[in-house]
Amino acid sequence: MNWVGELNKAFESRIRLGIMSVLRVNDWMEFTELKEILQVTDGNLASHLSALEKLDFIQVRKQFIGKKPNTSYAVTTSGQQAFDQHLDALEQLIKTRE
């Protein structure tokens, strides 16, 4: 089987792969936490989050804490499925090379 064909193009970027990896093991993460973990700029992170949101792979929660805006992200069910399939394809690809 051609496992390369099973890889999801949405996760080719190391930043998107990082976002999904972090969100997959955390219920919700704030923008600032993601930025710190992934060590990217605001604009770079925002563009990748926006792309994942358009694909319905992540959901956004905007709220105010006191008078300060707070934006958090979580993986959607379809995002979990797509990311898990991507990881499975990677694992199978690695196994075929052993």
Rank of each mutant, 00 (worst) to 15 (best):
R24S: 15
D56F: 00
L23W: 04
S72L: 09
N2K: 08
F64T: 00
R61G: 02
L90I: 09
D88R: 10
L38I: 03
L55M: 15
S13M: 13
K35Y: 00
N2C: 03
L45Y: 02
I15S: 13
I58T: 07
R16M: 04
K95I: 01
L55T: 01
L52V: 05
K9M: 05
Y73A: 15
T32C: 00
W28F: 09
D42R: 10
S13K: 10
Q63E: 13
G18E: 11
Y73R: 11
T77M: 10
H86E: 13
Q39E: 14
N2T: 06
I15Q: 14
A46E: 11
V60C: 02
R97V: 03
L34C: 02
N70P: 01
G43S: 05
R14P: 09
I37E: 11
K9R: 09
D27I: 02
L23F: 03
I19H: 06
Q81A: 12
T77N: 08
Q59T: 07
K95L: 06
F83Y: 15
L34P: 02
K62P: 01
F31G: 04
T96N: 05
A10K: 07
I58L: 09
T76F: 03
E53C: 07
A82V: 07
N8W: 05
S13V: 08
N2R: 10
Q85P: 02
T32H: 10
D84T: 13
I19K: 08
D84A: 14
T71D: 00
V75G: 12
I94S: 01
V75F: 12
A89P: 09
D42C: 03
